[in-house]
C-alpha cells in the first residue's frame, strides 16, 4: 500500500494537486478510501484527517467502504423518474436482497446505487451495469441482466 501512496503523493506534488485530487487518486487505486491511506496522507501533509473526512462525505463520488464486484447504477434524473426509474430501483433492491443499512450485498458481489443524472435522458430510464449504459430499461430486463451476472459469478 505504501508504494502506491508514495506514487500518489509524487503526482500530487508534480501536478499542484489538492485534497480532492488526492482522494480521487486514492479511490482510483483502491476502489474506495481506506482509512489507512487517509491517515498516511494526513501525516505527510500535516492536515487533520477530519479535513479529508469532511471532503469525502461532502461529495457523492467518494466511498468509505469497499464496493461490490459489480456496480449497478440506476439513474434517477427527472426524465428517468417520470419514465419509471422508481420501479427499476425497487426491483433491483428486491432481486439483490440488499441489507437495510448498506448498498452492497453481504457477499460483496453487488453494489447498488442511485445517481442524480447520467445525462442520457433521451433513452430514459437508464441503468449502468459495470460502466455499460443500458437505455430504455424495464424492470424485467434489469432483473434478467442481474441474474445473468449472478449465474456467471
Amino acid at each position: 500500500m505504501e508504494d502506491k501512496l508514495e506514487t500518489i503523493y509524487k503526482r500530487f506534488k508534480e501536478n499542484e494537486g489538492n485534497l480532492i485530487s488526492i482522494l480521487q487518486d486514492i479511490q482510483e487505486e483502491f476502489g474506495y478510501l481506506p482509512e489507512k491511506a487517509i491517515y498516511w496522507f494526513s501525516e505527510q501533509l500535516d492536515v487533520p484527517p477530519a479535513m479529508f473526512y469532511g471532503i469525502a462525505t461532502f461529495y457523492s463520488q467518494f466511498y468509505l467502504k469497499p464496493r461490490g464486484k459489480n456496480v449497478i447504477t440506476v439513474c434517477s434524473g427527472t426524465a428517468c423518474h417520470v419514465k419509471g426509474s422508481e420501479k427499476l430501483i425497487n426491483s433491483a433492491i428486491k432481486e439483490l436482497e440488499l441489507p437495510e443499512d448498506s448498498n452492497t450485498t453481504e457477499d460483496g458481489l453487488f453494489t447498488f446505487e442511485k445517481v442524480n443524472c447520467v445525462g442520457a435522458c433521451s433513452i430514459a430510464p437508464v441503468v449502468i451495469i459495470n460502466k455499460k449504459v443500458f437505455g430504455k430499461m424495464s424492470a424485467e430486463k434489469l432483473v434478467k441482466e442481474l441474474r445473468e451476472i449472478k449465474k456467471n459469478e
Partner: peptide
C-alpha cells in the same frame, strides 16, 4: 481539467471555485 466529485451545489460559482481549490464545495 478538474473533475467534479459529485455535488449539485458546485454549479454555483463560488462553490465551484471552492471545489477547484480542493475544498468542500
Amino acid at each position: 481539467i478538474k473533475l467534479g466529485a459529485g455535488a449539485f451545489v458546485c454549479g454555483e460559482e463560488t462553490a465551484l471555485i471552492a471545489s477547484i481549490e480542493g475544498k468542500r464545495g
